[in-house]
Design a protein around this nucleic acid. Structure first.
Lengths: 177, 177
DNA sequence: CTTCAATGTGTGCACTATGCATATATGCAC
DNA sequence: GTGCATATATGCATAGTGCACACATTGAAG
């Protein structure tokens, strides 16, 4: 039988992702794939479709079409890449706006959840999350996948337990006191 | 900017759900909807399609077809319900087997993740999870949705923070010491 | 008893998302 | 230059989903 801690962690993950996918937004960002692609373009600017394909874990054709959809919606733009083969993708002004809106909605939802805990408990939770995530990344592509919906702000400031390890850096400390 | 604890919780939720959806299984259970429906039938036996529709948060037609697919695959069966209108769904022998396999795979994955922590930390995590989930259920339908992938074993034994609250019961204590 | 709204299930249709196979253009090694 | 790998794009088939609608059953109001 499943252990209780494990089972409850599964429930929380489901709760978080259900709410993440239910966040209201513009029509072009209805599905989780489009959102991940938009955020990934914001996080890894001037990347090619092929690089982003890994971050959102899609087949080539699906990635091409996801990008085409965002371009049609005016959320991202194709610039000339390093090659004449590849393109360099970047957020447009409205793309930046929508990406920010989704990050803010994600943050507010997560704040509501973490807000069930008091200050001390939140610090403990952060320590546990760092310790868990530090060891769960398989390779750089996996790290990109895990970070595909992130706001990279806090990680740039205090270190990302997912990407630090990929870069050979030590496990970051928890924030604050 | 997103707070760090919040951001890391979002990453962990993504990690857990990505792995949950990637668990290998039979063809009829390829998608997350089919899996949720199968597990929900196991958890709420003899329920009607309409009841399960809420647990997996689908439209009526999608629920009808999800059920039909599982029936075609021999994983669940339709029995006569309380009405002549409704059906009572139940797992077949192979349905029970596949549901068990998915629960075991889910448990092993979650054990690997929680296993990054030592014994004391796991106890702390369980306390935090109980406290969070206790307050995050909106209504009985939402509770069913959150529990749609659970193995209800540990909750029957030690209390489910999601459903306890719906039933007016107090917040369950953490397990063990 | 009849009528009619509500409930539970099922179907036709359109749309989106996805993967496989394939095509085209470019880059690079030899 | 030739040949292979890379990057993007397209045709096709398939699965999943929602809306609108149809049908059967239930129950309550008259």
């Amino acid at each position: 039988m499943t252990q209780r801690t494990e089972n409850l962690l599964g429930v929380l993950a489901l709760l978080v992702m259900d709410e993440m996918n239910a966040q209201p937004t513009v029509a072009a960002l209805a599905g989780p794939t489009a959102r991940a692609m938009l955020n990934a373009v914001g996080q890894y600017p001037d990347s090619s479709i092929e690089v982003l394909r890994e971050a959102v874990d899609l087949s080539h054709p699906a990635a091409v079409r996801a990008v085409a959809g965002l371009v049609d919606a005016g959320l991202i733009e194709k610039k000339s890449g390093t090659d004449k083969r590849s393109v360099a993708l970047a957020l447009t002004a409205s793309g930046k706006r929508e990406a920010k809106r989704l990050q803010t909605a994600r943050d507010q939802m997560l704040q509501r959840i973490v807000g069930q805990l008091d200050e001390r408990e939140r610090g403990v939770l952060e320590s546990l999350l760092i310790k868990i995530l530090w060891s769960e990344t398989r390779d750089p592509a996996h790290a990109m996948q895990l970070c595909r919906l992130c706001d990279d702000g806090p990680c740039l400031k205090a270190g990302c337990p997912v990407e630090c390890r990929e870069q050979g850096l030590p496990m970051p400390a928890r924030s604050g006191t």
